[in-house]
Write a protein that binds this DNA or RNA. Structure first.
Lengths: 148, 148
DNA sequence: CTAGATTGATTCGTACTACGAACTAGATCG
DNA sequence: CGATCTAGTTCGTAGTACGAATCAATCTAG
């Protein structure tokens, strides 16, 4: 497990170790922010991920489960709840009548858009610690690391 | 909500937007890795966070709950299960007999150490896409952004 | 062309996570 | 001392996640 913001962080530790720690911290910070924002709308982190993924696509249940790394059975309930709240809808697939596709409703799209803005705003206290040039450098490094 | 690895990622979008997306991606990648590693040992992400936090400290239940951003009631069960598995132990506090401190057992410490190594190793496919100098640059930017 | 296998999704039962409210025991302050 | 506050636990509820079983539609071999 990565160290968590140790009071006595060893400044001299090796880069790979520090990178792992910094990435874990970044992960908890961003995912934590996302979780808090989601909670404001009574959504779970997973539901946020669903909205984020469907923002650009329309997927079958199986494909969505794969994207999320979840079992199909888990996704059924997840989509049930989101559908009941009017955030997305199931559309039966024309090519394969067993399959069900999922897409955002206008309400879901609207929520996703507002959430995206809130996320960027919530990140500002962190990101503005860097200059604009540094932010651009960070984007470049992260995108290359993630192979986006 | 941040966009999730869109197939048609707009290359030309503004830095703040791309930074938010890149940070969200980084968060999901690192936290996802952590979750998978945790699952190998039948641990939840939260239990991993507990181990990570206690790696350097010994805390009261309340303080631990604050560090995790959880309610005390949630923490009780969490610590129950981890204690039952021998990863940590409750120590009653001398100064305040209401209070309970929590610390890792040797087994918990050992697991945390092995987990940390596994995490760094699991990150390697991503981090090695950058040169050593770039990794150092990334560490610097992230640490300054997180104000570590 | 149909019998059997495979695939897409759902339902069911179980365990864990998380919350808030109610409670107990110990501290603190008037 | 008694009132109040704090630390932690217990309880009930809802959401998340899994795997096994199931059903319907599709595919494939003979």
């Amino acid at each position: 497990m990565p160290r968590s913001r140790p009071a006595d962080r060893p400044r001299e530790s090796a880069t790979p170790e520090r990178l792992a720690d910094a990435l874990a911290q970044t992960g908890f910070a961003t995912v934590g922010l996302l979780t808090r924002l989601a909670a404001d709308h009574d959504l779970s982190l997973t539901q946020v991920r669903v909205l984020a993924i469907l923002r650009d696509r329309r997927l079958r249940m199986s494909d969505l489960a794969d994207h999320l790394g979840l079992e199909r059975s888990t996704l059924s309930g997840l989509v049930d709840r989101a559908e009941a709240r009017g955030l997305l809808r199931r559309v039966s697939c024309a090519e394969d009548r067993r399959a069900v596709e999922v897409e955002l409703t206008p309400a879901g799209r609207e929520l996703a858009a507002r959430g995206g803005a809130a996320f960027a705003a919530g990140l500002a206290p962190l990101t503005t610690r860097l200059t604009v040039a540094e932010q651009a450098g960070l984007v470049d490094l992260l995108e290359r690391m993630l192979a986006i």
